[in-house]
Design a protein around this nucleic acid. Structure first.
Lengths: 264, 264
DNA sequence: CGTCGTATTGAGGAGGCTCAACTAAGGTGG
DNA sequence: CCACCTTAGTTGAGCCTCCTCAATACGACG
């Protein structure tokens, strides 16, 4: 009995810690996306449709057939820059980062990939950046050659991919604009907004935004030093715009105020 | 006779000036790309192929059928941010810039579009940035709705577009990495390299790189102030890496040295 | 030859980076 | 169970680079 209680407490504590460091299980857990799906805002005006594209069940089945489901631990390197590119990956659960190692020893983060995102950008059959799991992740690995065949055969499915890549292009442009600004607080505010928008609506309501990545990752993404991110966080807190419940969970206190700081 | 000479001289002078300010006619002039074509490095390893993709003559014809050829003067605004997006454009000749107007009154340049580039990025039927002619340009205007139909019907053609957008995504990521660096000289060096690579091989050999855009445009693209661009140019000149024949034509004196400065 | 737009040059100030010390929390091993 | 070590994050001081504001030079055009 005493042992049970002890175990229960330890279990809870461990769970909390795990939640904080690598929050893989959220509401809408793995089972919510049992088959591959893609998130993208279409470039066409969608009359009655939602903001997102959807694959037909047949398209999902086709993807499942050429794909393999993977489960990887946090920090696992998925592929390296210049490595032979044989696969494209779809994130089912967890967070992945893609980055480049610079000569100076610094690394430039290109993107954080969340569930329903694709990654595995290649050029002439070689990956153009590295990919690493931020949290423990569940991925869907698609053979590029098989995917290419499938896309050339199914124009509708390919159109979904075209829409997705176009979406990614817009995001990359947005980030490029973001990192030109000079003030650290503004950049961090935009980053928090960005992560908040990409969350499911469920938690958006509570205004709690998980930031599973480290301060260093955020700094490398925003083109700031780690210290500047820390100071910017303090600044946003001082102005009562956000509150960091933990280093990896931020609560937005003033949505409008944060938007004001984030505006360029 | 005297009048003829006078006219001839004036004609030559005018031509030279036009060349410098808006160098539309280059070797491989408009007639070199009489029908729409796209430039992109494929993401697949191309065994025997070149670095570029090519459209079949039938695909070109299909595009010509749904497209309209346009000739626009320099500085002409092609479309504005948030405007209804009904067209995608292919550059046939000249240079176009896409940018966003920021609240602060500044503008952030997203890209310079050269011949064989596409532009007209939209989100939910609205353009996400402005497009303006830098030089006088010849464009091919494609109706998005008709293009969409065509792409959904011709998977091979769509695959070319997918390849192109993927290429643009890589470029956007590269730029996002570029603008995180702190030193102005390094950024400008990368920019000169970038423009040199995108030139046709013909002039690359001579190491003369035309920069048809203004210093302000370069500054807005690199996330620097106009003055910093000027100072960076001076710095590169001081080190004998480049020489500015005119403000809009730079000659690379030391390819390796420039690459060294440009390296991150 | 004067004017306008573009590009260059100069002086001063702001912001972020670097270096370094310090704190907090987890994991390990005695 | 506690001391130790490692990693992540915070805080502080001084420096460096770029931005801003302002004046000047240059070239094109009327």
């Amino acid at each position: 009995m005493a042992d049970d209680v002890h175990c229960a407490i330890r279990g809870v504590m461990t769970l909390r810690l795990t939640e904080r460091r690598i929050p893989v299980r959220r509401e809408g857990a793995p089972t919510a996306h049992p088959s591959p799906s893609i998130r993208a805002v279409p470039f066409l005006a969608a009359p009655a449709e939602t903001n997102s594209i959807t694959l037909t069940s047949r398209q999902r089945e086709q993807l499942i057939q050429i794909g393999v489901r993977l489960r990887l631990p946090a920090r696992k390197i998925i592929y390296r820059e210049h490595a032979e590119a044989d696969s494209v990956f779809a994130v089912m659960d967890g967070v992945v980062k893609t980055y480049r190692e610079l000569r100076s020893g610094k690394r430039a983060l290109n993107a954080f990939l969340l569930p329903r995102d694709l990654f595995g950008l290649a050029e002439r059959g070689r990956y153009v950046n590295c990919a690493q799991a931020v949290t423990s992740v569940i991925l869907y690995r698609l053979s590029i050659s098989q995917l290419t065949l499938l896309l050339k055969h199914d124009a509708d499915l390919q159109f979904q991919f075209l829409t997705k890549v176009t979406h990614e292009l817009r995001e990359a442009q947005r980030r490029a604009v973001l990192v030109t600004r000079r003030d650290a607080a503004g950049r961090l505010a935009m980053f928090i907004q960005l992560m908040a928008e990409r969350r499911d609506r469920l938690t958006l309501r509570e205004r709690e935004v998980p930031l599973p990545m480290s301060r260093t990752d955020i700094a490398d993404y925003l083109g700031l030093s780690l210290e500047s991110v820390s100071r910017a966080a303090k600044e946003l807190r001082r102005r009562d715009l956000v509150k960091f419940e933990t280093p990896h969970l931020v609560r937005i206190l003033d949505v409008a105020g944060l938007a004001e700081v984030a505006a360029m």
